[in-house]
Design a binder for these strands. Structure first.
Lengths: 133, 133
DNA sequence: GTATCTGCAAAACATTTGCCCTTTG
DNA sequence: CAAAGGGCAAATGTTTTGCAGATAC
């Protein structure tokens, strides 16, 4: 009988384990660093398939890199343009947005809401640097 | 007297002219194609500065490329994962999202709302291909 | 034994950098 | 002439492709 494609391969599981660690959002490179016997291509392939399966979520940031996170409750992201840190922010009306997009007749598979700006921490740092006396 | 930086350089103007053409969303490559006496780096620099000035908007798509558009009324985007086409969709509650993000104390400079899925055109094409009789 | 999973190295792609020449106030 | 704009080629960084070996049904 013909072989069939695994839903989740051993390597996909190892990637998921890395994604369960302290840091919630990881780049492909960060995941690679924690799996040093594994090749680049393999990690990228695993990430692609985990996205297809809907287990993880890829965020494409304006910096040009992508970060990956487990799929959880809908939420939006805030990216600090100074320090690059990514914050999760709960967003209550994903369903409204989904409805809006679906209203055009398109089939919506995913919605990204991402804000960019300067985070509280960087604002305070700037304050201490220039505002001190 | 010391020279000072132009707000909008001649080249930035040429880029804006290209962006005023039929197609609303253009990649850097598409803009380059229409300005064939201009170097890559120059176009990218102009695009960066136009973004800084708040005249145009950079969209970072999950395909890894960016597209640029004139800044207009707030709206969201729908990207078809099959044909890659980008649709504009009016979105009424950008202010709510902005407020949500600002609630965390961060300074919000920009909000991206992008949906991904299969567009009406591609759905119909698939229908005709497999559903015909 | 055939399709899947994986590794490695090279390729591809988008964007940025460094350097040099030109222009302008 | 000092700073800014622009061109070119090379570098950078991220992701993908091609190919070969191992594995599982």
């Amino acid at each position: 009988m013909p072989r069939m494609r695994e839903a989740v391969t051993p390597l996909m599981n190892r990637v998921l384990q890395v994604l369960s660690s302290e840091k919630v959002h990881l780049t492909a490179e960060e995941i690679l660093d924690q799996l040093d016997d594994v090749g680049r291509a393999t990690v990228y392939r695993a990430l692609d398939r985990l996205c297809e399966e809907g287990i993880i979520n890829r965020l494409s940031l304006e910096s040009g890199t992508s970060v990956y996170e487990y799929v959880r409750k809908p939420h939006m992201h805030f990216v600090c343009r100074k320090c690059g840190k990514l914050y999760d922010i709960p967003v209550p009306m994903t369903d409204i947005l989904e409805h809006t997009a679906a209203g055009s007749g398109h089939t919506v598979q995913k919605i990204d809401v991402t804000a960019y700006g300067i985070c509280t921490a960087c604002q305070q740092a700037a304050q201490n640097e220039y505002g001190g006396y």
